[in-house]
């Protein structure tokens, strides 16, 4: 074709056609690449989101199972072992009055031990499921936490609230989760942060319940959180997620740390339920 004596115009037209065909091919390759790349990254994101959701579901399931198990153990300790120990204690009291002096002394020792076990069982049962939380609500339970910690001289815990009617914001299951979040935050502050002073507040603002937590501990680098979160913090995050809330963390090394958790107010039907 090229060696044939074709008119010059025809030759340039052929070359132009080849040129545009090649350019169109190159453009198609580029376009295909960018479209495929977008699709691949979308798929990768979807897979990542699915993986995260699965992980989060597993943790939530774990938390729920853990809470149910805690309740069951607390109830068993209180109703079964606790009442049986009380019966033993009553029996021992009766024996104390009828036996010889040596028997009375032995009964005294056993009674002392039994009462010690009763106290331990009670406190274990309360730790697992604080009765105050169920009977008097979250505010009272947190005030009790404040009171208990302030008994230890080296730690100063300050709790304040502006909520009169906590039922607007929390039902029983939410109370328990929020209580556990506070427990976890305090534990983290004391154990990892070596904090001496903790300020905690639970404030109601229109449709939002705000839990603020500040400490004067050693703090941490927030940027490094993504690479390695502890179980405690992951637990808090998952509980916040379960409550459909959001959490923000601010901290710097040697500057303490601060957490703010925002939860939406309960809907009316949720409150009635």
């Amino acid at each position: 074709m090229l060696n044939s004596p074709e008119p010059a115009e025809n030759l340039t037209i052929y070359i132009a056609l080849i040129l545009f065909a090649v350019l169109a091919l190159a453009l198609t390759i580029i376009l295909l690449f960018f479209v495929s790349r977008k699709k691949i990254s979308q798929k990768k994101l979807e897979a990542q989101a699915l993986k995260l959701k699965h992980k989060s579901d597993l943790i939530i399931y774990n938390i729920e199972t853990q809470e149910m198990e805690r309740q069951r153990i607390a109830q068993d300790l209180h109703d079964d072992i606790g009442s049986q120990l009380n019966l033993i204690s009553l029996g021992l009291h009766r024996l104390q009055k009828v036996g010889s002096k040596i028997e009375q002394e032995e009964t005294d020792a056993i009674l002392l031990l039994t009462e010690g076990v009763i106290d331990r069982v009670r406190s274990l049962s309360h730790e697992l499921l604080p009765p105050i939380l169920e009977k008097f609500g979250l505010i009272a339970a947190l005030q009790e936490v404040e009171f208990n910690y302030n008994k230890i001289n080296s730690i100063q815990l300050n709790f304040k609230t502006n909520i009169d009617d906590e039922d607007i914001y929390v039902d029983l299951s939410r109370r328990l989760h929020l209580y556990r979040i506070c427990q976890e935050l305090i534990q983290n502050s004391l154990k990892h942060g070596k904090a001496k002073c903790i300020r905690m507040s639970l404030l109601g603002q229109n449709d939002t319940l705000i839990l603020s937590f500040n400490d004067d501990g050693v703090g941490f680098d927030v940027n490094k959180l993504d690479s390695g979160k502890g179980m405690g913090l992951m637990n808090i995050e998952n509980r916040v997620e379960m409550l459909h809330g959001t959490m923000s963390i601010e901290s710097e090394l040697h500057e303490g740390s601060s957490f703010q958790i925002r939860l939406p107010k309960l809907e009316k039907d949720e409150r009635d339920h």
Binding site: L19, V22, L23, A26, I29
Partner: peptide, 11 residues
């Protein structure tokens, strides 16, 4: 590079 090389290849 792909575009320019394809084009100059033909020209």
């Amino acid at each position: 590079i792909l575009l320019f090389m394809c084009e100059s290849l033909v020209v």
